[in-house]
Design a protein around this nucleic acid. Structure first.
Lengths: 261, 261
DNA sequence: CGGGACTTTGAGCAAATTCAACCATTGTGG
DNA sequence: CCACAATGGTTGAATTTGCTCAAAGTCCCG
């Protein structure tokens, strides 16, 4: 199955030269504890280290394309990645944004189900799929971790369906912001000011809206005092009650007041 | 986290009496080959048989509710199940419909992420989660199968996001019908007449539309000769080219002319 | 035969889109 | 160093798709 792509693939990041790219040893990795590698001990980590190479991408570069053979799995080390699917006429749905420690490349039937592109300059760990699968035989808890990750993604996907199918434009935008804030909080990063590395266009394609509508929602919510921003890529949630109300959360608390979730 | 539910739980199916419900031995199961149990051999199947009980549900009965402790996993043996999530004000998004051989109950953090209800009279195999997980330790290929199932569901979820976010009402309805037809074909069931056990209301909540719009789409598509039906629960696809066009498939072939997918 | 649930159809309405213009920021070349 | 093109964001007016409200038709089952 071939997908229609206006853009050529000349910007495709060449595979890092095998064995030639020195990579930060996994033991020193900043995102390890949060990511799939967190379940591995010293010796296992060493084995894992053997089959990884680093990939660097600049904004707009693709990690892989929908329907490509799924030869690699990835872990984001730095930057933001967007995943999307296209209709034949070019309409785009961004199924998610990935951040450091997120896992990427679970595939159905050896083909990627979506395209992955860098939003901001990004660094990824790239694992050879075959060799990683071989490693799974040896480390069953790694496989268990993968299943856990897949379950989590499934749950997020269902949340996103609820958003796309049943929420209003304002609710969609507010839910999106709330989710990003919560994600930052979970990773012990500042959650008061939300960083939005992606464009309004990207946000629109993620929420099933148009750029114009997204922009209008932002200004409307700002006028109402729910959010605040000067830079369109840095937004603060001001009225947490109203935010939770719009996002469809039944607890109206700022993320840093929550006990656990 | 407690969800708002107008309906009480008086219709909840009582757990089948443990050990008391005789069940068709797995070896004789009609959906085994298609389902998760398909990877098990004779001895393994026997072990699996030990931890399963049968559940029967009549239309509208719940298998479990969102946020319930995820104590069981299920395989559908007969009937149709709808999965959904609710917003606080009652808006509903049906994330999927399940059919015989489908697997149910992958949970995040020990809680179900959605409610599961019978659409038509249904029969399910119910597995104790703890005991099944223990079995996974012994049968790693079973865990691999679960991961495969999760990957497939993830891919379907992404397709559904594309549908919800970017397709028109007609396209949504046609995509839905096409998918059901393809699913029937894959299971070697008649794919020329699509069985729709669910109501227009259910379809609407699955496609992010209202009943009225769904109904209008059906009549419009019938007038255009794309589909045909007398009974609203039995629909035939007549114009496969136009169907593929609307559904966003790039091959305009009837499912029974496809080589493989 | 009658009641209830589901489906269909119609008319008016509203949320979001489309089309268009304008503004702000950034990077480039003269 | 500044003009200016390019990109991304915002705002406005007109349009449209799908929704809401309302009513009528259909089917099933007691």
């Amino acid at each position: 199955m071939e997908i229609a792509l206006k853009s050529d693939r000349s910007d495709f990041n060449p595979p890092a030269r095998a064995g030639a790219t020195p990579i930060n040893p996994c033991a020193a990795c900043g995102v390890r504890d949060l990511s799939i590698c967190g379940v591995l001990d010293g010796e296992e980590l060493k084995r894992m280290n053997d089959l990884v190479t680093e990939a660097r991408l600049s904004p707009g570069q693709a990690v892989f394309y929908e329907a490509d053979p799924a030869s690699y799995l990835f872990v984001i080390v730095e930057g933001c990645i967007r995943l999307y699917k296209l209709l034949l006429d070019g309409r785009r749905q961004i199924t998610g944004f990935l951040y450091p420690s997120d896992f990427l490349g679970l595939a159905m039937q050896d083909r990627y189900a979506y395209t992955a592109e860098a939003v901001s300059p990004a660094r990824l760990c790239r694992f050879d799929r075959g060799r990683l699968e071989a490693l799974l035989e040896e480390f069953p808890h790694l496989e268990k971790r993968l299943l856990g990750i897949a379950s989590n993604e499934l749950a997020s996907a269902q949340d996103q369906m609820l958003l796309l199918g049943r929420k209003t434009a304002d609710e969609k935008v507010m839910s999106f912001l709330y989710l990003l804030s919560r994600r930052a909080y979970m990773k012990r990063q500042p959650a008061d000011v939300i960083q939005l590395p992606m464009s309004r266009y990207d946000i629109a394609d993620h929420l099933g809206l148009t750029t114009e509508t997204v922009s209008r929602c932002f200004t409307r919510l700002r006028k109402q005092g729910v959010i605040g921003f000067d830079d369109p890529h840095q937004v603060a949630i001001l009225d947490w009650m109203r935010c939770a109300d719009l996002a469809g959360i039944d607890e109206g608390m700022a993320p840093n007041t929550r006990i656990n979730t």
